[in-house]
Design a binder for these strands. Structure first.
Lengths: 230, 230
DNA sequence: CGGCGTTTTGAGATATCTCAATGGGAGTGG
DNA sequence: CCACTCCCATTGAGATATCTCAAAACGCCG
């Protein structure tokens, strides 16, 4: 449920989520100063086929990373939350598109600079490696959800993962910060099925939905985890 | 359709540039000589939860990398073919299981040694990074297949990918080298649906099936690609 | 207040699954 | 060399989860 975790800025940056940051950043001095870009809902960070000039780190909001089939069907690969890196890869072009689901901010970093530095800096290269390993684990987890689970299991797994990923301490409430269509395209379901499943969970007393369907209270997290089948 | 691509032997054989200037290959000296392990069909290379002491490179055969849900449903994440690396990761334990689908051979490499070397060798670390990027791309591609495509599209996509991955020059024939159940668990379908879809493709004249259902001739590769929806 | 995008709900259609039976090879032992 | 068995693949028929199409309700913003 995260694109990549990487602490590129050292202790000087505050308010970041560092998950496996392990000390100061070597890249710090050499990376050109990063600019921040604001995005409105539905605005693209980049599109498939664009030159991969930059890598982005989410600062605020949610970015949906996705790919579309020729006929328009869309699979969301990942939602990127603050701290996550998007746009990493080995090619010159982006192979995925990335779009804000709500008003967001991203920090723009030079892809070339990052990779040039990594060529001589094992610490940074290893960090990139580990970040992508984490992203890979998240993608696998989604693959399992989409390949094997029923609609209700998928939605429960999504809610549990979202909670783990974004919940502030103690709070059993998650903010969806996206449309039903985004959840549907992540889970390989239709909007209607997502909606029906959510109301079924509400009827079962496992969740409560507020604020126009965007704020979800997880009343029975244990039950929810159980329904997700791990 | 591949776990990870990495030429570890040439990395050391061709000599890498080291910042410490000792002139010889770090990887070469410190990677313990690799042993080769033979596996019979269905034998495991490693299981989820095992200590991640080694990383393996497939030499012969096919290895299914998978994860099972508590209730036994299984999602195959990837088939690893000769040259592919399996077992890379950031944790001390394997999070996936790996099992030969046919008699196979794997080269065993020390995970600790590999990662220790990568800590001081940016070239190797960057290779690991790029390998995992490729694996990530393959997993995403499967995710899209499983999340968005119909049964016939999934099977076509599988056949096309298998062909790209394993076909010798000019040959329009692929060797399945696995059971229907393996294909089903990769594509998120049932054995019966895979079987029915295959015979439908045969009826349509797009493929021919020989040798007890393991050898498939792709009579109309263009059509097959088309049916896969890219 | 009106309009727009989104979500919810309903009812019927359908792709895929489930359960069950049949068939085919490959290997084994007589 | 021929049964016999086992495992796997195929085929069929009915069940069902999810999708599709359609309408109504909601919430937000100008």
């Amino acid at each position: 449920m995260f694109a990549a975790q990487l602490d590129l800025t050292s202790a000087s940056a505050t308010g970041m989520h560092h998950r496996h940051g392990d000390g100061s950043s070597v890249a710090e001095q050499r990376l050109p100063s990063a600019t921040v870009r604001r995005l409105i809902a539905k605005e693209h960070v980049f599109c498939e086929g664009d030159d991969r000039e930059q890598v982005f780190q989410v600062e605020e909001g949610v970015i949906a990373v996705y790919k579309t089939l020729p006929d328009g069907r869309r699979q969301i690969i990942d939602f990127a939350y603050p701290g996550d890196l998007i746009g990493l890869g080995v090619l010159d072009e982006h192979v995925l598109s990335a779009q804000a689901t709500v008003p967001s901010k991203v920090k723009c970093l030079s892809a070339a600079a990052l990779e040039r530095i990594a060529e001589s800096d094992a610490r940074l290269a290893l960090k990139l490696y580990k970040s992508v390993c984490h992203e890979l684990a998240a993608t696998r987890s989604l693959l399992i959800t989409v390949g094997q689970r029923s609609a209700i299991e998928r939605v429960c797994a999504f809610l549990v993962a979202l909670h783990r990923r974004t919940a502030e301490a103690e709070s059993a409430t998650v903010d969806l910060a996206m449309r039903r269509s985004d959840i549907a395209d992540l889970l390989g379901l239709t909007i209607e099925t997502v909606s029906r499943t959510l109301t079924k969970l509400r009827t079962m007393g496992v969740i409560e939905i507020a604020q126009g369907g965007t704020r979800v209270q997880l009343c029975d997290l244990a039950r929810l985890t159980d329904l997700a089948n791990e």
